[in-house]
């Protein structure tokens, strides 16, 4: 008797296969897709801002180019992610400054000169590559011009005279 009742219950029950309602999921994905397409970057060079600094904001819309990256935070100066100099709250240690020229940062110059040497060697062997002395400067927005002037002066001495300041786009 009980067995017959169970069979009846199983027959009445809905089938084991069922359809998931995916309409709302598709809606969600379409919204996500539109947002991602809108913020999709077509620039060939991607600069990732460091968490050690806040870049200044600007209305400039010029995309970055693939050149040497110089990063100046309050604590250190980096060349292509390699720490070359320590700073104390944006102030240069006197041991890194040239005794005869207070604008000249010797340690930074040594590293930049090496980089320039490498680029010049590549340029001399490959006609398609040209050393144009361009450098992208990523610097904290609160750093004083006093420090940036020293960095730019030193980079100019090493052959990097075309400085491009990295900024956050306001658009």
């Amino acid at each position: 008797m009980a067995r017959r009742g169970f069979k009846k219950y199983m027959d009445k029950r809905s089938p084991a296969t069922f359809k998931i309602q995916v309409t709302s999921m598709v809606d969600m994905f379409v919204i996500l897709l539109v947002f991602l397409l809108k913020s999709y970057s077509t620039s060939p060079v991607q600069l990732t801002p460091s968490d050690k600094m806040t870049l200044p904001a600007s209305t400039s819309t010029k995309d970055p180019v693939d050149v040497l990256k110089l990063m100046v935070s309050k604590d250190a100066i980096y060349v292509e992610d390699k720490k070359v100099m320590d700073l104390k709250g944006g102030i240069v240690d006197m041991k890194d400054v040239d005794a005869n020229d207070t604008q000249f940062l010797r340690t930074l110059y040594t590293e930049l000169d090496q980089q320039a040497g490498k680029s010049r060697t590549i340029a001399s062997k490959n006609e398609e590559v040209e050393f144009d002395g361009k450098v992208i400067l990523q610097a904290d927005r609160s750093l004083p011009y006093e420090l940036l002037k020293k960095v730019m002066y030193t980079s100019m001495m090493a052959g990097y005279s075309d400085v491009k300041i990295a900024v956050l786009s306001k658009d």
Binding site: L32, L36, S60, K62, L168, S169
Partner: peptide, 21 residues
């Protein structure tokens, strides 16, 4: 498509200002 776009998306758009020394 979503993972591909997530990898190449730029949430922070960085541009440059030319300042030739």
């Amino acid at each position: 498509i979503v993972p591909m776009l997530l990898m190449s998306v730029a949430f922070v758009h960085i541009t440059v200002v030319d300042t030739p020394v």
